[in-house]
Design a protein around this nucleic acid. Sequence first.
DNA 1: GCCCAGGAGCCCG
DNA 2: CGGGCTCATGGG
Length: 228
Amino acid sequence: MGIKRIYDRLFEEYGSQGWWPVTPVGGCKGVKPEGPIYGVALKNEKQKIEIIFGAILTQNTSWKNVEKAIISLNNEDLINVDKIIKIDKTELAAVIKSAGYYNQKALKLKNIAEFLKKYPIKALENMELGKARELLLAVNGVGPETADSILLYALNKPIFVVDAYTKRMFDNLGLIKKDDSYDNVQEFFMKNLPADAKLFNEYHALIVEHAKRYYSKKPYGTKCFLRG
DNA sequence: GCCCAGGAGCCCG
DNA sequence: CGGGCTCATGGG
Protein backbone atom coordinates (compact mmCIF):
# COMPACT_ATOMS: atom_id res chain seq x y z
CA MET A 1 0.00 0.00 0.00
CA GLY A 2 1.20 3.52 -0.81
CA ILE A 3 1.45 6.14 1.87
CA LYS A 4 -1.47 8.17 0.57
CA ARG A 5 -3.66 5.08 0.69
CA ILE A 6 -2.45 4.33 4.20
CA TYR A 7 -3.47 7.82 5.22
CA ASP A 8 -6.92 7.32 3.79
CA ARG A 9 -7.35 4.03 5.65
CA LEU A 10 -6.21 5.56 8.94
CA PHE A 11 -8.50 8.56 8.55
CA GLU A 12 -11.39 6.29 7.66
CA GLU A 13 -10.67 4.24 10.77
CA TYR A 14 -10.01 6.97 13.37
CA GLY A 15 -11.27 10.23 11.87
CA SER A 16 -9.81 13.67 12.55
CA GLN A 17 -7.49 13.75 15.56
CA GLY A 18 -7.68 17.49 16.19
CA TRP A 19 -4.02 17.92 16.98
CA TRP A 20 -2.24 19.60 18.73
CA PRO A 21 -4.29 19.42 21.95
CA VAL A 22 -4.28 22.76 23.78
CA THR A 23 -5.76 24.27 26.90
CA PRO A 24 -8.92 26.22 26.06
CA VAL A 25 -8.97 30.01 26.31
CA GLY A 26 -9.58 30.93 29.93
CA GLY A 27 -7.35 28.20 31.26
CA CYS A 28 -8.06 25.12 33.30
CA LYS A 29 -7.76 26.49 36.81
CA GLY A 30 -10.67 25.50 38.99
CA VAL A 31 -12.35 23.49 36.25
CA LYS A 32 -10.66 20.42 37.53
CA PRO A 33 -10.04 17.49 35.36
CA GLU A 34 -10.11 19.69 32.32
CA GLY A 35 -6.75 19.56 30.62
CA PRO A 36 -5.79 20.29 27.07
CA ILE A 37 -8.59 19.75 24.59
CA TYR A 38 -8.64 18.56 21.01
CA GLY A 39 -10.02 20.09 17.89
CA VAL A 40 -9.11 23.74 18.30
CA ALA A 41 -8.66 25.06 14.78
CA LEU A 42 -7.54 28.61 15.44
CA LYS A 43 -5.08 29.13 18.22
CA ASN A 44 -4.24 32.34 19.97
CA GLU A 45 -0.64 33.26 20.76
CA LYS A 46 -0.69 31.78 24.24
CA GLN A 47 -1.93 28.49 22.88
CA LYS A 48 0.87 28.47 20.33
CA ILE A 49 3.37 28.99 23.12
CA GLU A 50 1.78 26.12 25.01
CA ILE A 51 2.26 23.92 21.95
CA ILE A 52 5.93 24.88 21.76
CA PHE A 53 6.47 24.13 25.46
CA GLY A 54 4.51 20.90 25.07
CA ALA A 55 6.69 19.82 22.16
CA ILE A 56 9.69 19.96 24.48
CA LEU A 57 7.92 18.36 27.42
CA THR A 58 6.77 15.39 25.38
CA GLN A 59 10.25 14.34 24.32
CA ASN A 60 10.42 10.60 24.97
CA THR A 61 7.53 10.93 27.41
CA SER A 62 3.91 9.82 27.39
CA TRP A 63 1.43 12.58 26.68
CA LYS A 64 -0.48 11.73 29.83
CA ASN A 65 2.48 12.79 31.97
CA VAL A 66 3.02 15.88 29.85
CA GLU A 67 -0.60 16.90 30.20
CA LYS A 68 -0.26 17.12 33.97
CA ALA A 69 2.80 19.32 33.60
CA ILE A 70 0.94 21.58 31.17
CA ILE A 71 -1.96 21.94 33.58
CA SER A 72 0.52 22.90 36.30
CA LEU A 73 2.18 25.44 34.03
CA ASN A 74 -1.21 26.96 33.29
CA ASN A 75 -2.18 27.08 36.93
CA GLU A 76 1.07 28.85 37.76
CA ASP A 77 0.46 31.21 34.83
CA LEU A 78 3.71 30.07 33.24
CA ILE A 79 2.56 29.73 29.64
CA ASN A 80 4.44 32.95 29.16
CA VAL A 81 7.84 33.60 27.63
CA ASP A 82 8.94 36.31 30.06
CA LYS A 83 7.91 34.33 33.11
CA ILE A 84 9.78 31.23 31.95
CA ILE A 85 12.86 33.35 31.42
CA LYS A 86 12.52 34.83 34.87
CA ILE A 87 11.59 31.84 37.01
CA ASP A 88 14.21 29.95 38.95
CA LYS A 89 15.25 26.79 37.15
CA THR A 90 14.75 24.51 40.16
CA GLU A 91 11.30 25.97 40.77
CA LEU A 92 10.35 25.40 37.13
CA ALA A 93 11.64 21.84 37.33
CA ALA A 94 9.29 21.19 40.25
CA VAL A 95 6.30 22.46 38.27
CA ILE A 96 6.98 20.16 35.32
CA LYS A 97 8.07 17.20 37.43
CA SER A 98 5.44 14.80 36.08
CA ALA A 99 6.86 15.10 32.56
CA GLY A 100 10.14 13.47 33.60
CA TYR A 101 13.68 14.66 32.77
CA TYR A 102 12.59 17.74 34.66
CA ASN A 103 16.05 19.22 35.14
CA GLN A 104 16.90 19.00 31.47
CA LYS A 105 13.46 20.11 30.39
CA ALA A 106 13.44 23.12 32.72
CA LEU A 107 16.62 24.26 31.02
CA LYS A 108 15.22 23.51 27.59
CA LEU A 109 12.09 25.56 28.33
CA LYS A 110 14.26 28.48 29.36
CA ASN A 111 16.29 28.09 26.16
CA ILE A 112 13.22 28.10 23.93
CA ALA A 113 11.78 31.05 25.87
CA GLU A 114 14.95 33.03 25.22
CA PHE A 115 14.63 32.03 21.59
CA LEU A 116 11.02 33.22 21.43
CA LYS A 117 12.07 36.50 23.01
CA LYS A 118 14.44 37.01 20.12
CA TYR A 119 12.17 35.51 17.46
CA PRO A 120 8.53 36.05 18.47
CA ILE A 121 5.82 33.76 17.09
CA LYS A 122 4.77 36.32 14.49
CA ALA A 123 8.32 36.67 13.21
CA LEU A 124 8.61 32.90 12.90
CA GLU A 125 5.27 32.67 11.14
CA ASN A 126 6.38 35.15 8.54
CA MET A 127 9.73 33.46 8.08
CA GLU A 128 10.55 30.99 5.35
CA LEU A 129 10.15 27.41 6.55
CA GLY A 130 13.77 26.38 6.02
CA LYS A 131 15.07 29.44 7.82
CA ALA A 132 12.78 28.98 10.82
CA ARG A 133 13.75 25.30 11.01
CA GLU A 134 17.44 26.14 10.95
CA LEU A 135 17.04 28.65 13.77
CA LEU A 136 15.00 26.24 15.87
CA LEU A 137 17.54 23.46 15.45
CA ALA A 138 20.23 25.78 16.78
CA VAL A 139 18.45 25.93 20.14
CA ASN A 140 19.92 23.51 22.67
CA GLY A 141 17.17 21.05 23.48
CA VAL A 142 15.42 21.29 20.12
CA GLY A 143 16.13 18.38 17.80
CA PRO A 144 14.52 17.55 14.44
CA GLU A 145 11.25 16.14 15.76
CA THR A 146 10.70 18.95 18.23
CA ALA A 147 11.56 21.57 15.62
CA ASP A 148 9.19 20.03 13.09
CA SER A 149 6.40 19.67 15.67
CA ILE A 150 6.75 23.37 16.45
CA LEU A 151 6.81 24.31 12.77
CA LEU A 152 3.77 22.20 11.93
CA TYR A 153 1.56 22.46 14.99
CA ALA A 154 2.36 25.91 16.36
CA LEU A 155 3.37 27.75 13.19
CA ASN A 156 1.22 25.88 10.67
CA LYS A 157 4.13 25.26 8.27
CA PRO A 158 3.91 22.28 5.89
CA ILE A 159 6.54 19.91 7.24
CA PHE A 160 6.20 16.23 8.06
CA VAL A 161 6.95 15.16 11.64
CA VAL A 162 8.80 11.87 12.06
CA ASP A 163 8.84 10.13 15.42
CA ALA A 164 9.77 6.73 16.83
CA TYR A 165 6.29 5.40 16.02
CA THR A 166 6.57 6.51 12.40
CA LYS A 167 9.86 4.70 11.95
CA ARG A 168 8.71 1.57 13.73
CA MET A 169 5.42 1.32 11.91
CA PHE A 170 6.65 2.04 8.41
CA ASP A 171 9.69 -0.16 8.89
CA ASN A 172 7.32 -2.92 9.92
CA LEU A 173 5.21 -2.26 6.82
CA GLY A 174 8.37 -2.54 4.72
CA LEU A 175 8.26 1.00 3.36
CA ILE A 176 11.39 2.32 5.09
CA LYS A 177 14.26 0.83 7.09
CA LYS A 178 14.36 1.42 10.81
CA ASP A 179 17.91 2.75 10.75
CA ASP A 180 17.13 5.31 8.06
CA SER A 181 17.98 8.81 9.24
CA TYR A 182 15.33 11.27 10.36
CA ASP A 183 15.86 13.36 7.24
CA ASN A 184 15.58 10.38 4.90
CA VAL A 185 12.30 9.24 6.41
CA GLN A 186 10.93 12.76 6.32
CA GLU A 187 11.96 13.09 2.69
CA PHE A 188 10.21 9.84 1.86
CA PHE A 189 6.92 11.19 3.14
CA MET A 190 7.28 14.67 1.72
CA LYS A 191 8.20 13.42 -1.73
CA ASN A 192 5.13 11.26 -1.86
CA LEU A 193 2.59 13.69 -0.43
CA PRO A 194 1.46 17.21 -1.35
CA ALA A 195 3.03 19.92 0.86
CA ASP A 196 -0.11 20.50 2.88
CA ALA A 197 0.13 21.44 6.56
CA LYS A 198 -3.36 20.16 7.28
CA LEU A 199 -2.54 16.77 5.73
CA PHE A 200 0.78 16.51 7.56
CA ASN A 201 -0.90 17.50 10.80
CA GLU A 202 -3.54 14.82 10.51
CA TYR A 203 -1.22 12.13 9.19
CA HIS A 204 1.28 12.34 12.02
CA ALA A 205 -1.51 12.34 14.60
CA LEU A 206 -3.11 9.32 12.95
CA ILE A 207 0.20 7.47 12.96
CA VAL A 208 0.54 8.09 16.69
CA GLU A 209 -3.00 6.90 17.34
CA HIS A 210 -2.58 3.80 15.23
CA ALA A 211 0.88 2.97 16.53
CA LYS A 212 -0.28 3.27 20.14
CA ARG A 213 -2.75 0.50 19.39
CA TYR A 214 -0.70 -1.82 17.18
CA TYR A 215 2.96 -0.89 17.52
CA SER A 216 3.54 -0.38 21.23
CA LYS A 217 4.12 -3.98 22.20
CA LYS A 218 6.29 -6.65 20.68
CA PRO A 219 5.86 -8.32 18.38
CA TYR A 220 4.94 -5.10 16.61
CA GLY A 221 2.12 -4.85 14.15
CA THR A 222 0.79 -8.38 14.39
CA LYS A 223 -2.87 -7.34 14.21
CA CYS A 224 -2.34 -4.20 12.13
CA PHE A 225 -4.96 -4.00 9.38
CA LEU A 226 -2.58 -2.12 7.08
CA ARG A 227 -0.49 -5.19 6.43
CA GLY A 228 -0.93 -7.08 3.21
C1' DG B 1 11.05 -6.51 37.90
C1' DC B 2 10.92 -5.08 32.79
C1' DC B 3 9.62 -2.25 28.80
C1' DC B 4 7.92 1.74 26.83
C1' DA B 5 6.44 6.81 26.41
C1' DG B 6 4.46 11.88 20.60
C1' DG B 7 13.90 12.68 21.93
C1' DA B 8 18.13 15.17 22.36
C1' DG B 9 22.92 16.04 23.70
C1' DC B 10 27.31 14.44 24.46
C1' DC B 11 31.18 11.59 24.02
C1' DC B 12 33.73 8.44 21.67
C1' DG B 13 35.68 5.29 17.97
C1' DC C 1 28.73 9.75 10.74
C1' DG C 2 26.91 6.03 13.79
C1' DG C 3 26.32 3.84 18.40
C1' DG C 4 25.93 3.83 23.40
C1' DC C 5 24.88 6.43 27.59
C1' DT C 6 22.19 9.67 30.37
C1' DC C 7 18.17 12.02 31.67
C1' DA C 8 13.20 10.55 35.12
C1' DT C 9 8.20 10.06 35.89
C1' DG C 10 4.33 6.88 35.42
C1' DG C 11 1.52 3.10 33.39
C1' DG C 12 1.02 -1.67 31.60
